[in-house]
Nucleic acid binder design. Structure first.
Lengths: 204, 204
DNA sequence: GGGCTAAGCGGACGTTACCCCGCTTAGCGT
DNA sequence: ACGCTAAGCGGGGTAACGTCCGCTTAGCCC
């Protein structure tokens, strides 16, 4: 038996490409920290990284792709907590409790990352339904274990996903200040979510 | 007393401007019918109308503004039905029934107009919270008349607005086909909405 | 009807996302 | 080691949004 590389089929990412990708991501974070997401243009990022514009596009496909990649790092950590962390967020608790816990956790996750999350929308086309997020499949899995009518399960999951992610992720704020949500608003949203789920799935 | 023009204060829209606006809107509808919303670019619209680009921007401000203007015509008619039509959609029925009726009506309104509605999102910036739609204020008004806790009223309205408009207006479809929703999906969403409201505001 | 003024108008211009295609080079097989 | 090939890379090119500013003209007052 010789030494196997992790993947057999897909040629695996080339070393220089991986190095560049990390460098680009790091540079993007710097630029965001210094001037905000607005100023992260493809040209500026390429120039500041000392790489060509074509390279940036090859790596991320689109401007939104940069921010999606940035989010992915933290998103993965969040998923870990949901998939294998302690209950009630992780497995072990009844679906109802997990849904409520998920709502709270997701809400503050989105709040902490709303600047970048917002930027992933920039383009237009595919409109990420939670994007690479696990909200939709996770809620679907949990709701499927309740005794809600199966016929409308998918529709309901869609609505609850929108209810959960929409206010923070898309609309960001109801008030006149079209900017960041306040912690108080996040708290109110969490409470409202709790009420909503409590109505839908009354405790035994 | 001489003959008064409808408006006294704001100089009223100039006749040529009004003519041009209608002409632009009509041309835009033609272009949409022929090639879809994608091909309605500011330059193309200006050229096909025989007008300057500056004129198009002055009228609509942004590309999304064109589609918003297009929607507004029908939106106004929809609002009429809600504000002064027969119950349960119009005034007269209990809030609970009106909310359910509103959900159904709004859902099919969005379905009928989803091509144009979708296009109003094009850019990124302001993210229309229902845009010029009445969903948010209307739901707020109706929910305020129920005995839901006032502290989370605003948060709940936000979530319900997202639940109602999100799936059709933004995400459009859950399935693999990222295109139009099917009538069956709309029907399922309406039923799910009914269930959701029924849970939240149980019938007496 | 004639002149004044603010609104309307046009199109050149700047910016930015995204495409394309020829050159370079990493990583594999022998 | 060495050559082959597909992936990576660079940067100029295109199209579209939105801005600006000087010219034109509708609509009001006398």
């Amino acid at each position: 038996m010789a030494q196997d590389v992790p993947f057999g089929k897909p040629r695996a990412e080339r070393a220089d490409a991986a190095r560049n990708r990390e460098h680009l991501l790091r540079t993007a974070r710097e630029m965001i920290a210094e001037h905000g997401t607005e100023k992260v243009t493809m040209d500026a990022l390429a120039e500041r990284s000392g790489l060509g514009k074509g390279t940036v596009f090859r790596r991320f496909g689109t401007r939104a792709g940069i921010f999606t990649a940035l989010l992915d790092e933290d998103e993965r950590r969040f998923q870990q907590r949901v998939l294998s962390g302690p209950p009630p967020l992780g497995p072990g608790a009844p679906p109802r409790d997990r849904i409520i816990a998920y709502g709270r956790a997701r809400m503050s996750y989105l709040y902490e990352h709303h600047v970048i999350a917002r930027a992933t929308l920039h383009g237009a086309r595919p409109v990420p339904m939670g994007g690479a997020s696990i909200t939709h499949p996770h809620l679907r899995m949990l709701l499927a274990r309740t005794d809600l009518p199966a016929a409308i399960l998918d529709a309901l999951v869609l609505q609850l996903t929108a209810a959960l992610e929409g206010p923070t992720f898309l609309y960001v704020s109801a008030g006149e200040n079209a900017d960041s949500p306040t912690p108080a608003e996040i708290e109110a949203l969490s409470t409202a979510w709790h009420l909503l789920i409590d109505s839908l799935l009354p405790p035994p």
